[in-house]
Computed example of a mutant assay.
Amino acid sequence: MSENQTVLREAENKVIIEGTLLEKRLEEKEFNGQNGKRNAITGELDIETAENEVHTVRVFSFEKKVDGSDNGIFKGLKTVDNEYKSVAENGREEADKVRITQGQIGLNEYYGQDGMLRSFPQISANFINRVQAGEEFEPKAEFEIEAFIKSVSPEVKNEEETGRVKVEAIIPAYGGKVLPFSLMAPVEAAEYIEDNYEPGSTVKIYGDIINFKEKKVVLEDVAFGKPKEKVTYNTVREYLITGGSEPYEEENNKAYDVELIKKALTEREIYLAELKAKKDQPKQEEKKAGFNTKSNKTTEKKEKKKIDLPF
């Protein structure tokens, strides 16, 4: 492939959401970082695109840029917090309809108390606009990404293939980072993807973001007294492919180089190891506190794991 860079090119990564503002959970707080203490606004917005279909969007912005000038993103998010009306605060009739056109797919990753990595898709955005009166309102949640294909495999449920296919992809992000990401292709797209999306290829993929949760209550008969309620939830969360490009030609300078992907995955493993070590540190300190002895400080050398891709 013709990409001759030492850092991966950031992939196209766009999320479009249009719906009713269901709830705001925003707050201002102070962060202490490399550039000193800085005030910021952070939190989440819930946007409803259909009945039982809600998408959570993460927002964050410092009040001032590094050079001390005002940050327009912060100002815009303050307007959302102070002026936008949500169903939770103002009722459905008064709630604003909102539109996001430049959101991004990311990952929320952390280690749980059991030491296992938790990784969930996360949508973030800097700009949330109100749909004005008279404007066309078209509720939806869609994505458009460039991705490096890691694998394609049939979806299996109850030991039977469903006809759909699961696409394991890698999305190069800002600063050379990579996001391992799972997508699902419907039956009508499965054959093309299986035949053409080979591991190691670069493609552009379009689709719908599905986040459906339906509560079902069934009343069970009892011999006496009130009927017993049995509550179940039907939940579907997936990134469903609705279309895509042909794989980029090897000569295309946008096609990702396998070795650069491997290198980025190795750096990701190191990052995750450091994240886990940071999570485990309080436990280690707690154990040390139980002994009245001094321990020698040692320097651990991090070994880079070799990343083997299936091609």
Rank of each mutant, 00 (worst) to 15 (best):
N4T: 13
T6Q: 07
L8R: 03
E12W: 00
I16D: 11
I17S: 08
L22Y: 06
E23H: 02
K24Y: 03
K24Q: 10
L26R: 07
L26D: 06
E27V: 10
N35P: 00
K37F: 06
R38W: 02
R38P: 13
R38S: 15
G43P: 11
L45T: 12
E51L: 08
N52T: 06
E53F: 15
E53K: 13
H55V: 03
H55I: 14
S61H: 06
E63R: 08
K64Q: 06
V66F: 01
D70F: 00
N71A: 00
I73P: 00
K78Y: 04
D81M: 15
D81G: 13
D81Y: 09
E83G: 06
S86M: 03
V87P: 08
V87R: 04
A88P: 01
E89K: 09
R92W: 14
E94D: 14
D96E: 15
K97V: 07
Q102F: 12
G103R: 07
Y110M: 05
Y110W: 13
Y111W: 08
G112Y: 08
G115W: 11
M116V: 15
Q122H: 05
S124A: 06
N129M: 12
R130K: 12
A133N: 05
E135L: 05
E136P: 11
K140H: 10
A141W: 14
A141F: 15
I145G: 04
A147V: 15
I149C: 00
V152D: 02
S153F: 02
S153A: 15
E159R: 10
E160R: 10
T162S: 03
T162F: 00
T162K: 10
G163C: 11
R164T: 07
V165D: 02
G176V: 03
K177G: 09
V178A: 01
F181A: 00
L183H: 07
P186Y: 01
A189S: 08
I193Q: 09
E194Q: 13
E194I: 08
N196S: 11
N196V: 12
Y197H: 09
Y197E: 03
E198W: 03
P199T: 00
K204A: 09
Y206P: 01
D208R: 10
I210G: 02
I210C: 04
N211D: 15
F212V: 03
F212Y: 13
F212C: 06
K213S: 12
K215W: 05
V218I: 14
E220T: 15
D221K: 15
T232C: 12
Y233E: 04
Y233V: 02
N234Y: 06
V236S: 13
E238F: 07
Y239A: 09
I241A: 07
G243H: 10
G244W: 12
E246M: 04
P247E: 08
E249K: 11
E250C: 10
E250W: 01
E251R: 14
N253T: 05
A255M: 07
E259L: 05
E267G: 01
E269N: 05
Y271N: 04
L272Q: 02
E274P: 01
K276R: 11
K276V: 09
A277K: 10
A277Y: 02
P282W: 12
K283N: 09
K287M: 13
K287T: 05
K287L: 14
K288A: 11
T293F: 05
K297G: 11
E300P: 02
K301T: 04
K301H: 03
K301A: 01
K302W: 00
K305H: 01
K306F: 03
